[in-house]
Amino acid sequence: MFNKFDYVVPTSWADACSFMASHPTAMIYAGGTDILVRCREGRLLPSHLVDIKGLPGATAIAQAEDGSIVIGAATPLNAIERFLKGKAGYEALVQAAHVVGSWQIRNRASVGGNICNASPAADTAPALLVLEATLRLVGPSDERILPVGEFFLAPGKTALLPGEILRSIVLPAPAEPTVSIYLKAARTKAVDLAQVGVALLMLPDKNVRVALGAVAPVPLLAWSGRQSAPPANWTTEETERLVSVVEQMVAPITDLRATADYRRHMVGVLLRRAVGQATLLHQERGEGR
């Protein structure tokens, strides 16, 4: 079944980091929904699984005094969805968390695992990119804060250094009334990886961000900039200009889930749909004021 790995429960983050630094074939273990599948297939042969779920704050999600939201790296996706649901501006992360795997998977699968796998198709990655999340990385001797945009280096490769662990993810408080959307194309409604993922965030000051999954070697912030119209008054021309800019950023591949051409096409389809949903939400919220 699995290789004969040992199971380690560290007593502190520092303890976990020093263990990781001195055991290069050990792996951090949170929800297990990816790691155990890959162990079973023999694609991973860890010497130790280091379970961080019991460490301080690892599975906690809370709003800080400055309005930002701090999410422990091992927090399950269902807990994130429950916490953020109804909080304006965070819709993209709620929607991205919701479309990973199945209900059972989301009771276990963590947001930290989703991004540390560094899959180009990780659903939460585009959402974290448009929300301008920052990552708190703890290492054997110090810790650092990294913007999520600098975390993904290549498929399966992150900016984590030996012995370094993702401890938490911080979402800055979005300016009101921000709206964000995540849309995913997949072969089935549940339990499939994204063929394309599109996250869109529209700020009240006309700034717009678009991030994409599964169309480049890493999750990609494809556009961040000011548009000529506020979100509630977008025209088709505004949308088409954004689509043509974003489409030039992609470099999709053909694999078992979709062809490169289909992926390229779906970027435009999902982005137009996301703009439609976001402008509608902006209008609704504007009227509610």
Binding site: R40, G101, V191
Partner: peptide, 26 residues
């Protein structure tokens, strides 16, 4: 055996989980 089919679903502290993707030590 890989979290796709749900036949192994049990409740762990009241939450449904795939028992093929949970270690007994946990």
């Amino acid at each position: 055996g890989g979290g796709e089919c749900g036949a192994c679903t049990v409740l762990l502290d009241g939450e449904s989980i795939n028992s093929c993707l949970v270690l007994a030590v946990e």
